[in-house]
Nucleic acid binder design. Structure first.
Length: 301
DNA sequence: GACCAGGGTAACT
DNA sequence: AGTTACCATGGT
């Protein structure tokens, strides 16, 4: 009981950059911010609640997974945080493809692409359309409270945020009405969420089948869901199906790429095609460095 | 009050 | 095939 799992000298890793770069929405920072080298977050993901702390270590960072045993780390969090991938190599390949990205990457060198749960990721990015990140987080939280598994009061030490529930499984979300979802402030996206949930529960949309498909085919399949277009499909592919060749182009990426590469108004599909050609099967990761860089600098606004 | 937000759909040319 | 109004909601 109450055992913590500690991993030291983790390289190319920074919790703040990973969680706050717009790829996930069910987390909260819980440390005071007084110590500039210490970060603590509460995360609801993979059917679990996690309290995690990051501190400097000799060569990289030290991560403390509270109330976590080795099995849980090996089978859940190692994959979730993509700790098997060598981001040093990824960064080298991106810089090789475009040396101008060296400075951009060096501003947020600890980004990693999370491997999120498919259903939560799908619904989260349906919600994301025409919303800002704080609002997306609120709707995700509302839907979790509505019908997700509740957290026990004393389940985890130091769990400071007020998440009271996990994101619902497909059948749980299928058990509520469209008006219930509207009540979560989902607005016009409520019927989209209903359609996505129905298609997942019925098996018409199958994560297992999507994983077997080539990226283009999986993208087309995802876009048969109402409210899922090119951008949302690419987010699901990148953030939950391991397709680092998927390059989501939102309003930010459009502005950023236009400023860096095109120097004129350019259609999103042309941007996507061009970036995928430039960065190949790690274009999605390059996208993440570009996204946070552009947002922090308010590029194009 | 107008305008925008990690967009997508349907109804137009 | 390429535009455009509209979609809920909250923030500036």
């Amino acid at each position: 009981m109450n055992k913590d799992y500690i991993k030291t000298d983790v390289k190319d890793f920074h919790l703040k950059e990973i969680l706050e770069c717009g790829q996930c929405f069910h987390f909260s920072r819980t440390d005071s911010g007084e110590n500039p080298n210490k970060f603590e977050y509460d995360i609801a993901a993979c059917g679990r609640f996690l309290h995690i702390m990051e501190e400097p270590s000799a060569d990289g960072v030290k991560l403390t997974f509270y109330d976590t045993d080795e099995w849980e780390y090996e089978h859940i969090w190692k994959d979730y945080f993509d700790l098997e991938s060598d981001y040093g190599e990824v960064k080298r390949r991106i810089i090789e493809a475009d040396p101008r990205l060296e400075d951009i990457i060096s501003e947020n060198p600890g980004i990693r692409i999370l491997n999120q749960e498919f259903f939560e990721c799908l619904i989260s990015f349906i919600i994301s359309q025409n919303k800002q990140i704080p609002q997306i987080k609120q709707v995700v939280r509302n839907i979790s409270t509505l019908c997700g598994d509740k957290r026990g009061a004393d389940s985890i030490r130091f769990f400071n945020s007020d998440f009271d529930a996990l994101f619902p499984r497909p059948k749980q979300l299928a058990s509520v009405t469209e008006d219930d979802i509207r009540g979560c402030k989902a607005g016009f996206r409520a019927p989209y969420i209903m359609d996505a949930t129905e298609k997942v529960v019925s098996g018409e949309i199958s994560e297992k089948e999507l994983r077997r498909m080539p990226t283009d085919e999986a993208r087309q399949k995802l876009m048969t869901i109402k409210g899922v277009g090119e951008k949302v499909a690419n987010c699901v592919l990148l953030y939950s199906l391991g397709r680092t060749d998927a390059f989501p182009v939102d309003v930010w990426m459009k502005r950023i790429c236009e400023e860096l590469y095109f120097h004129k108004d350019t259609p999103k599909d042309e941007i996507e095609k061009s970036m995928c050609k430039k960065f190949g099967n790690i274009a999605g990761i390059a996208q993440q460095y570009l996204f946070i860089y552009g947002k922090e600098r308010n590029i194009g606004k």
